[in-house]
Simulated assay, not measured.
Amino acid sequence: MRPSSTNFALVVRLYDRLYELLVPSFANQRMRLPCLTFKLGPVSGTRSPTGYVFRARTGALGIVEITTTEDLSQLDSLTLVHPWIDYLLDRHPVGRIPETDPENTSRQSSSTGDAPFLSGPCNTIHVVRPGRASRIMSSITWPFGGSDTHTLQSPTPVSLQEKRTEVLRFIARLRRPFGALLFTRNRQNVEEYRRVATGSLITVQVEELTATVLNKVIEGAGMLDVL
């Protein structure tokens, strides 16, 4: 089902906003990461045999259920991050590592039972082998710290009809479940973040693309400073 004309205009706005973002970079022990961010509301948690189970709400993702060994209730804020911007735009870097494609990762995870996709508004963070999520983090878009040959392909001019087709494909990719990362602010009142729950594979999905949800997603599109 295609979005209404109003919602389609918002999708185009999001599409253009993502194209304006800079590529990831490292400087002064900080990473500048283009991404979509989804701030979680207050978490409520219970003990489980493997650690903790937390539940929280976010405007665009609905209710998120988190299973992790870390006590997230001790953190002041939590933000889920969608780092797969090149995948959403179908804009792959030269020398891209195929296995870092979120769609490929999703199929592999689903086949091994690590992170089955869930239907409905409730999503789960599944605990997986330590280091796996860290390897995903190190190869988002292109291998950080690697050769400068891993650069983005230059965009080519497209017609209005071609752009409409690209945006429709973008909508389809935006609706798919994706592997997210979990961050918290490093200090209060400072826009610097550090990653938490690094041993967890996070699978979430954007809810129905209503005007309210799309506006929240647009608000969350930007560059994140990661320590």
Rank of each mutant, 00 (worst) to 15 (best):
T149F: 11
M137Q: 13
G145D: 02
I125Q: 11
S159G: 12
H126C: 08
T141P: 00
S159P: 15
T149P: 00
H126A: 09
P155F: 00
W142V: 08
T149K: 13
S138D: 10
M137E: 15
P143K: 00
T156K: 02
H150N: 09
Q153C: 09
T141S: 07
L152M: 05
S147W: 03
T149E: 09
Q153L: 07
T156F: 01
S138E: 10
I125D: 12
I136H: 12
H150I: 04
Q153A: 12
R135L: 09
S134V: 13
H150K: 10
T141Y: 01
P143H: 02
S159F: 05
T151M: 01
S159H: 08
I140A: 05
V158M: 06
L160K: 14
L152Y: 10
I125V: 13
L160Y: 08
A133G: 14
T124Y: 14
G146R: 04
H150L: 01
I125S: 15
W142K: 05
T141Q: 05
S139E: 08
L152V: 06
T151S: 03
I136S: 07
S134P: 05
S139N: 15
S159I: 07
G145S: 07
L152D: 03
S138K: 07
A133T: 14
R135P: 06
Q153G: 14
R135T: 15
S159E: 01
G146Q: 05
W142L: 03
V127T: 12
I140N: 04
P130F: 07
R129D: 15
P130T: 12
D148Q: 07
A133Y: 08
G145W: 01
S138W: 04
R135A: 11
V127M: 11
T151Q: 04
V128M: 02
I125A: 13
A133P: 13
P130A: 04
P143C: 00
G131T: 08
G131M: 03
V128W: 03
T149W: 13
F144Y: 11
S139T: 15
T141F: 02
V128S: 11
R132Q: 12
R129Q: 13
T141H: 06
R129G: 08
Q153K: 06
P157C: 01
T151E: 03
G146S: 10
V158K: 07
W142F: 11
M137N: 15
T156V: 11
G131N: 10
W142P: 12
P157M: 00
M137R: 11
H150D: 00
T124L: 06
Q153S: 13
I140H: 10
D148K: 00
S139D: 13
I125E: 11
H150F: 05
T124R: 07
G131A: 06
D148I: 02
I125W: 15
T141I: 08
L160N: 12
S159T: 15
V158Y: 01
